[in-house]
Computed example of a mutant assay.
Amino acid sequence: MSRAISLEEENKELRRMLTIMRQKAYHNDQLLHSFFEAKLKLMSSTTLAELVSYLLNDFRRDFKLSSLTLMLLDPEDIVRDLLQGYEVNSTESELHLLKSQGPLNELFPDLTYFCGEPSETIRTFCFPHTVTIQSCVLLPLIQDNCLIGSLNLGSHDQLRYSQFLSYDYVMYLASVLSTCVEICISRETLVRLSSIDSLTTTANRRSFNEHLSREINRCQRSNEPFVCMMLDIDHFKSINDRFGHLSGDQVLRAVAHLLKEKRRILDCVARYGGEEFALLLPSCSLDTGLRLAEELRRTISETPFYGQEGESIQVTCSIGLTVCDPKHPQYYRDVEKLKSNLISSADQALYRSKHNGRNCVHHQPCPMLISP
């Protein structure tokens, strides 16, 4: 009888252990699935902002983390520029951009991850907004044997991350993340170089033409007009001749900064060539376009500009504009021809402004396309 009871108890214990093992296997399978999902999402991120947003939101939620912070080395503000509009280094941000490698070297003196109970220094530096973290993994982000950042995972559970366990899978994820960060930065930098004027940091001529094509298509769908505007700095050659080309470059940068500062959210500002700028104003009527152009003209004429040596330079501009009116459907029979007509009409209006004494605004209607 006792032997039967013993066998029954042994079977119960075996069933209990089997249940535990099944639960662990299921948990590990889910973890592995989440791990591969995270890898795919990281690798499919096309921009740095998209990658950072995924880490700080979806990744943290999917892995049930109490806290997640990301630190990236950014001595030349390249990352900051790519993340324009994304909150960094604020009192509530979980993303921090570091000017020097010093703090990373202190966290990872031997380039390996830290796992276990965080010290007070780690809590303060890595988890400043969640000081109750009881266990953590600090993952070095390494590219070409150089520390480029740190991904910090924190938990309120003291047993979640233990120094006695191996976390090779998260180290592998960190290596994937390091590569993805570098790829996103390189890709976006190349895109910016191909679409942005290096002197003024406005869009370049190629990018403006692409914006113009998209705006024509949008205009056709939305049935809203838009304005195409050309702006030219008056007597710019004399600025170069009198104050030097470095001062001329400084004036170009200052005018470009003013145009970007005064534009509406959806407006496009581009350096079209030399001292000439082109602007696209979506959802804008002729009356509104003329008013905005006059405001720009007046603002530029009243703004003090300075050369390379601090010398005061008086600057005025001439502006010409035209309107793409969706009331004329025959516009859209040939988009390339319409683009050419819009730019030509704005140029003609600009020429009238220059011919009539400069420092003024003129409008030139855009001719309708002849239906085939």
Rank of each mutant, 00 (worst) to 15 (best):
I78M: 06
L68S: 06
Y54D: 07
V52M: 01
K41R: 15
N28I: 13
S45K: 05
F63L: 14
L55Y: 08
H27P: 06
T69E: 13
L55W: 09
H33F: 15
S66H: 07
M43I: 13
L51A: 10
L82N: 09
L51M: 13
T47Y: 08
L31C: 09
F63Q: 05
E50F: 00
A38S: 12
D74W: 07
L82V: 08
L32F: 14
M43A: 10
R61V: 01
V79T: 05
K41E: 15
F35I: 03
D29P: 00
L32N: 14
T47L: 08
L73W: 04
E37T: 13
K64C: 10
I78Y: 01
F63H: 11
L42W: 10
T47V: 04
L72C: 03
E50Q: 09
T47A: 07
V79N: 02
V79I: 15
D62H: 03
H27M: 12
L65K: 06
T47N: 07
S66N: 09
I78W: 00
F59G: 01
R60H: 04
L72V: 02
P75I: 02
H33L: 15
L65C: 10
L42C: 10
M71H: 04
S66P: 01
L83I: 09
S44P: 02
F35A: 07
R80G: 02
L68W: 08
S45T: 08
E50A: 07
S53V: 07
T47P: 05
T46G: 03
R60Q: 11
E50H: 04
I78T: 12
D74C: 04
V79G: 05
V79H: 02
H27E: 15
L72S: 01
P75M: 02
L68F: 08
E37Q: 14
F63M: 09
L51D: 05
L65N: 08
L32V: 12
L83C: 03
L72K: 04
Y54A: 05
R80E: 15
L48N: 03
L73D: 05
Q30C: 13
L32G: 11
K39S: 12
T47S: 15
G85V: 11
L32T: 14
L40D: 11
E37A: 12
L32R: 13
L68V: 12
F36R: 12
L82R: 11
L56F: 08
S34Q: 13
A49F: 04
Q84L: 11
S44E: 13
Y54Q: 07
L73N: 07
